[in-house]
C-alpha cells in the first residue's frame, strides 16, 4: 500500500509554484490557514525513504514523518523545479541523497534561521 507525504507550504513556497498548475492541488487545513500538498508515495519509494533516514517513520494516518528537514526542503525544491507531484520528484530528490545526508548530519548543530525581522 502506498504511503503519503505532506509538504507544508508558506507564502514563499506558494509564490515559487505560481503558474505551475500545482495551485489546484493545494489542500487547506486549519480553516484555510495552513496550506500543503499531500503526495502519494509508491511503496518502493516510501521504503527507500524509510531505509535511508533512520528517524523517518510512518504515522497512524499512513504519512511518512520525521524525515530530515534537508529532505523536506530538497523535496520541495524538486517539486518546484519539475512543477509536478509525481514519483519522478522523489527520484530527483533521492538523486541528491549525499547532499541531503551531509546537510542532515549538521541539522543537530545548525539550522538556518528564517530571514524575518526579530
Amino acid at each position: 500500500m502506498s504511503k503519503l507525504f505532506v509538504v507544508l507550504l508558506d507564502d514563499k513556497r506558494v509564490n515559487a509554484i505560481k503558474g505551475s498548475g500545482l495551485e489546484d492541488k493545494i489542500e487547506y487545513m486549519f480553516g484555510g490557514n495552513l496550506r500543503a500538498f499531500t503526495m502519494e508515495m509508491p511503496d518502493e519509494k516510501a521504503n527507500t525513504i524509510l531505509k535511508e533516514f533512520d528517524t523517518a517513520r510512518t504515522d497512524t494516518r499512513g504519512c511518512i514523518t520525521d524525515t530530515p528537514l534537508a529532505f523536506n526542503r530538497t523535496l520541495f525544491e524538486e517539486i518546484a523545479k519539475a512543477k509536478s507531484l509525481g514519483p519522478e520528484v522523489v527520484d530527483n530528490t533521492m538523486a541528491r541523497l549525499d547532499e541531503i545526508k551531509e546537510l542532515a548530519a549538521k541539522e543537530s548543530d545548525y539550522l538556518p534561521a528564517p530571514d524575518i525581522p526579530t
Binding site: 508558506d10 507564502d11 513556497r13 486549519f30 480553516g31 528537514l69 523536506n72 538556518p112 528564517p114
Partner: peptide, 13 residues
C-alpha cells in the same frame, strides 16, 4: 516540524 523547516506558521497555530 513546521518550525524546523522554517515555514512561517499561520496565526491560527
Amino acid at each position: 516540524g513546521m518550525v524546523g523547516e522554517g515555514i512561517f506558521p499561520p496565526r491560527v497555530i
